[in-house]
């Protein structure tokens, strides 16, 4: 049996406030297996995004551990986590976060540039991924000239460029209309499946959640069975 690509144990996080600490996550244990897709739902403020930031090591927990393919990441340096994050996971955000000075192709290639030396294989893969998301004709367009759906497709291609074993998506359809959101979600699930990547999806949409292998509901700082 293969080991989890992502695992958390007793993950706890609270934010400081003048009135005292506000607990967000309390002892969250979870695991995502290779190739598995997991959706997280929850009310606003339930800690979905915080959980995603903790498992991507963008924030540190107050207690508990996060393990990427068995390695406890908070025992390593922040530079190690940054370097590892580059190849271990692809990130997709609600607001796309494309770099406005770069065209679609260059935005996708940024993931490979951050990894280190840019190779011909990286360039080829960027073109293939843009072709897969239906943007081969718009590679030289800057984000300002792309629609919301197109921008999110570029972000999907960027997330998958380094063939990460894990894709984290934080409400990737939140800024899109229903139809475009449907297309993008379909594409995300399909790409992860084809690439063999695990998917950790934060969403409000119960319909999208049902398309993942496993659904979790975050409430009161922990997972709730529904």
């Amino acid at each position: 049996m293969s080991s989890p690509v992502l695992q958390t144990t007793n993950l706890t996080k609270a934010y400081a406030s003048p009135e005292g600490p506000i607990p967000v996550l309390s002892g969250v244990d979870m695991a995502v297996m290779p190739g598995e897709s997991v959706s997280i739902r929850g009310e606003s403020g339930s800690g979905k995004t915080t959980l995603l930031y903790l498992i991507s090591a963008l924030e540190s927990p107050d207690h508990g551990q996060v393990m990427w393919t068995g390695e406890s990441i908070f025992e390593k340096s922040s530079n190690w986590r940054a370097r590892r994050r580059c190849t271990f996971m692809g990130l997709v955000f609600q607001a796309y976060y494309l770099i406005p000075e770069l065209d679609a192709y260059e935005n996708v290639l940024m993931a490979a540039r951050l990894k280190g030396k840019l190779t011909a294989a990286d360039r080829q893969r960027a073109k293939e991924l843009l072709d897969r998301v239906g943007l081969s004709a718009r590679m030289t367009h800057t984000p300002g000239k792309l629609s919301g759906g197109e921008r999110q497709r570029v972000a999907l291609a960027r997330a998958l460029l380094n063939q990460p074993p894990l894709v984290l998506a934080d409400e990737p359809t939140g800024n899109l209309d229903e139809h475009t959101g449907e297309d993008v979600m379909e594409l995300l699930l399909e790409l992860c499946r084809d690439e063999g990547a695990s998917l950790f999806l934060v969403t409000h949409n119960p319909d999208f959640a049902t398309r993942t292998d496993r659904q979790l509901f975050l409430h009161g700082g922990g997972f709730e069975q529904r």
Binding site: S56, L58, S78, N79, A82, R83, R85, C86, T87, L91, F93, A95, Y97, I99, P100, M110, A111, L114, K115, R158
Partner: peptide, 14 residues
């Protein structure tokens, strides 16, 4: 700021 956050999130060191 958000682009800087994104670059940091996808693997850039400070």
């Amino acid at each position: 700021t958000r682009e800087i956050g994104l670059i940091g999130a996808i693997g850039a060191s400070s």
